[in-house]
Design a protein around this nucleic acid. Structure first.
Length: 340
DNA sequence: CAACGAAA
DNA sequence: TTTCGTTGG
């Protein structure tokens, strides 16, 4: 999925604490999808409530937002609207991957291979409308604002970093960079270690920040040129990219010729995609204009009632989690009081 | 993914 | 106190 700019961009390690008192636009789909994919039991089944409805997204949002708010981070979630029509091929491709994974999952279960079962189950992850509604409901109890983007959430999140309404956009995808986000944060979480699938080794996952300006300067490219590099590698709007062209070759070609139209080797393949329109999606995306991003008071009782009474969360766990948040916020206001 | 609790 | 395997819903 997504665009492989990993090896080209300038990435700097950072910490969650560095984002204290800053508004961060979070790609809601990206975040929730990751919760749904990873918050599972050993057999690959997601968490669910007494009625069998999935709750992994709610669990993820609960703990992560408590951590954000405890650190004084101000998250604003940006939800996707209608995908651009050029995305249909990519959406089909993802659907196919899920169907293949479903078959592999069933086989792994039949074979009693739990590790494979979990891996393939993760690949079958899909987000239902109800989950989006439920996530918005929980955010509302938290007093955390969310925005409905007219089209791609990434684009509106990027836009907020340019109007100054957000400090950075948080997502795992590099699309934000092509969308023109001033700053992108990846791994926007404080969970340290993560297991490498199938191996007994762990790697440290730390938040990293990508400043678009620094990246462009270091690559000596304009944003328009970087977008063309992206198209060569492959974006959601031309998922396969160009044959035998990876990040390295793509960069070299654009450095040499500046524009897709001027690269002799690719002209035949270039006819097959609507590259003008792809550029347009990144350069002039449809975005939401927001007057003011408002953070409301936390409705602790609302959170507890919803999660415990309606979604089968453990009362003890929810209470102790919320108490942790209350304590952290009290401490913050005490620190603030000392200035007066 | 993040919290929890047992073990080191 | 830190590390690691397990559980959460």
């Amino acid at each position: 999925m997504g665009l492989n700019l990993k090896d080209l961009v300038v990435r700097e390690k950072t910490t969650l604490e560095a984002f204290s008192n800053k508004v961060i636009a979070i790609d809601a789909y990206n975040a929730i999808y990751q919760f749904l994919a990873s918050i599972r039991g050993p057999d690959g089944l997601q968490l669910s409530d007494a009625e069998g409805r999935i709750t992994s997204h709610l669990s993820g949002l609960l703990y992560r937002n408590v951590n954000f708010l405890s650190l004084g981070i101000k998250p604003v979630y940006v939800f996707d609207g209608k995908p651009p029509s050029l995305k249909t091929a990519e959406i089909e491709r993802r659907k196919q991957i899920k169907m293949d994974a479903t078959i592999k999952y069933e086989k792994a279960i039949a074979d009693g291979n739990l590790e494979d079962a979990r891996k393939y189950a993760q690949q079958t992850t899909s987000m239902k409308d109800g989950m989006v509604k439920e996530s918005k409901q929980l955010l509302t109890y938290f007093g955390i604002p969310y925005i409905e983007a007219p089209s791609e959430g990434e684009a509106t999140a990027a836009h907020l970093t340019n109007t100054g309404q957000a400090y950075a956009s948080a997502s795992q995808d590099f699309d934000s960079i092509l969308c023109g986000a001033k700053r992108l944060v990846r791994n926007f979480t404080n969970s340290g270690r993560r297991k490498i699938p199938n191996k007994n080794t762990y790697i440290d996952i730390v938040p990293e920040i990508i400043e678009t300006q620094k990246t462009l300067e270091s690559l000596e490219l304009t944003r328009e040129e970087l977008i063309d590099v992206g198209i060569l590698i492959g974006t959601d709007f031309n998922p396969n990219g160009f044959e035998r062209i990876g990040p390295k070759t793509a960069l070299k070609m654009i450095k040499q010729h500046s524009r897709l139209e001027d690269i002799p080797q690719i002209q035949e393949q270039l006819q097959e995609i609507d590259f003008q329109q792809i550029r347009e999606i990144f350069l002039n995306p449809e975005v939401a204009e927001i007057d003011e991003i408002i953070f409301n008071d936390i409705d602790y009782e609302g959170i507890t009632n919803y999660l415990v009474k309606e979604r089968s969360f453990s009362e003890d766990r929810v209470n102790s989690t919320l108490n942790r948040l209350k304590k952290a916020l009290e401490k913050k206001s005490q620190n603030l009081d000392q200035w007066f």
